[in-house]
Amino acid sequence: MQRMGFEETIAELRANGVRLTPQRQWILRYLKETHSHPTAEQVHHEVSKALGGISLATVYNTLHTLTKMGVIRELSYGDGSSRFDGNETEHAHLVCDQCGTVIDIESPEVEQILSPEATRNGFNIRAYRLEFYGVCEDCQKEQAVEN
């Protein structure tokens, strides 16, 4: 499945009768155009640059709604704050243990591995979440400078 861009997502939502407030559009645009997996607070900070009067509660409510619609994904890493991913397709992540950076990786091989196992067990896979934890390149460079 190919990742949908902002315009495609807007067209699909309109076709399904979804009300698209300016706030929803700005938040969705930001998430579709970034690859940084921001927190709600980071989304609020960025979207506030365009929509000065947007409240944090509106951002939270919109993120929840967009997640329920399936056009964004909510990622939780146990640190108390969710991150949001504008890439709605099935994919894996690299997660830095030190700085928390989250990087998308395409993983078509995962489906090839899971499908036969799921079939053998009579399981219908609806979605998956695969993450690899380690240290990103920037943090490794920082460590090298400190040592």
Score class of each variant (00 low, 15 high):
Q2Y: 08
M4W: 15
F6W: 11
E7F: 02
E8S: 12
R19V: 15
T21K: 13
W26T: 15
L31Q: 01
T34Q: 06
H35E: 07
S36L: 05
T39V: 01
T39Q: 01
E41R: 08
E41K: 05
H44D: 08
H45N: 03
E46A: 15
S48I: 02
S48K: 12
K49G: 14
G52Q: 09
G53M: 11
L56Q: 11
A57Y: 03
T58Y: 01
T58I: 11
Y60G: 03
Y60E: 10
N61E: 15
N61D: 09
H64C: 07
L66A: 01
K68E: 12
K68D: 09
G70K: 05
G70Q: 13
I72F: 04
R73Q: 14
R73F: 04
E74F: 04
G78M: 02
F84V: 09
F84D: 02
D85E: 06
G86N: 04
E88V: 07
T89W: 04
E90L: 12
D97W: 01
D97T: 08
I103A: 01
D104W: 05
D104Y: 06
I105F: 10
E106R: 10
E106H: 11
P108R: 00
P108V: 05
I113C: 07
S115E: 11
A118Y: 06
R120I: 09
N121A: 15
Y128K: 04
R129D: 15
L130G: 08
E131L: 03
V135N: 01
V135I: 12
V135Q: 02
C139N: 04
Q140T: 05
Q143L: 13
N147C: 07
